[in-house]
Computed example of a mutant assay.
Amino acid sequence: MKKLIIGENIVKSFRVGNEKHNVLDGVSVEINEGEFVSVMGPSGSGKSTLMYAMSGMDGIDGGKVSFDGRNLSALSEKELADLRRTKMGFVFQQPTFVKNLNILDNIILPSMRDNRNSAAKITEKARTLMKKVGIAELEKRDITQVSGGQLQRAGICRALISSPKIIFGDEPTGALNSKSAQEMMDIISDINSEGTAVMLVTHDAKIAARTERIMFMYDGKIVSEMRFKKFSGTDIDDRMKKVAAKMREIGI
């Protein structure tokens, strides 16, 4: 399987007074094309920082991150922005939308910059995605007229509008109730089954248990990994027990 992202000895530091602290302390990790991975760990362990480093959203102080063969540190800010916009999709715990645009216009906005002459095609794709995630009837709604779960679905549509190679999710189900979280994971799993890689940061064992590989972080390092077969929908309890046992073993 082809490697999509390669992180080698990644270091990310911050200072408190005269003391230097490594949020990422020599982390090495690889993500393959089409892989479904998650990152777990206590607050401050570096899991979100790792995701930002792997996506080029945040610079690093040491090591190297390559995306699809390109060294992110060697790219200009414009090149990084173009890469993120065309090859990566992002879903966050609290999706950010433009207040004076409706749901459909918010979804297509990022792609209009690169496809000024294809507005009809982009709009058609957005409507197809909205139908796929169950919000087709909401395209004319303002963002204040839909639920949090519906906004997250719109966020997934926006993340997929450019047909990215990977979706990054930072606690994408963190603000949802259990039913909406399960529905969101069903959608993300479907996206992955169609060939898009997924990297999720989560504190929820039930969410992580649905992925194929879990990386456990502690004090800026990946201290353990766990692998599963593709989620069948029937073995969640057994997978959760194994994740919980590993968390107890590590002390998180």
Rank of each mutant, 00 (worst) to 15 (best):
V146A: 09
I161M: 03
V37C: 14
A74E: 11
I236M: 04
T211M: 13
V201T: 03
N71A: 09
M184A: 11
I191F: 08
A53L: 10
L83V: 02
G148F: 03
T128I: 14
L129S: 03
A53H: 07
E35C: 02
G63W: 03
L50S: 06
E212H: 00
E225Y: 14
V29S: 10
S66M: 15
G148T: 04
K241Y: 12
G149V: 03
A181R: 01
K165T: 08
N22G: 00
G155C: 05
T173F: 08
I252Y: 04
D170F: 12
N71H: 03
M54T: 00
A175I: 09
A53F: 04
I103R: 03
K165Q: 12
G169R: 12
A53D: 04
S38G: 12
A205L: 08
N192E: 05
S38C: 12
A244Q: 13
N32K: 14
S178P: 07
R84G: 07
I10R: 02
F231W: 15
K230W: 03
N117R: 13
M88F: 11
T96G: 15
T144G: 12
H203P: 01
S118M: 15
V98W: 05
G148K: 06
K229S: 11
L160D: 07
T211P: 12
M130C: 06
I60R: 07
F14V: 09
K87F: 00
E212N: 12
M88W: 09
T49Q: 00
G149F: 11
R239A: 10
V98C: 12
V23W: 01
V65P: 08
L72K: 01
I108D: 08
R210Q: 14
S28A: 05
T211D: 13
D82Y: 00
F97W: 02
D170P: 08
K229F: 00
A197T: 03
I222M: 00
V198C: 10
E19S: 14
Y52G: 01
E8L: 02
I156H: 03
N100L: 12
R113T: 04
Q145M: 05
A120C: 03
D25V: 02
S111H: 06
V39D: 02
I31E: 02
D237L: 15
K99H: 06
N9K: 13
K241F: 11
L138P: 01
K241D: 13
G7S: 08
L72C: 01
N106E: 14
I156K: 03
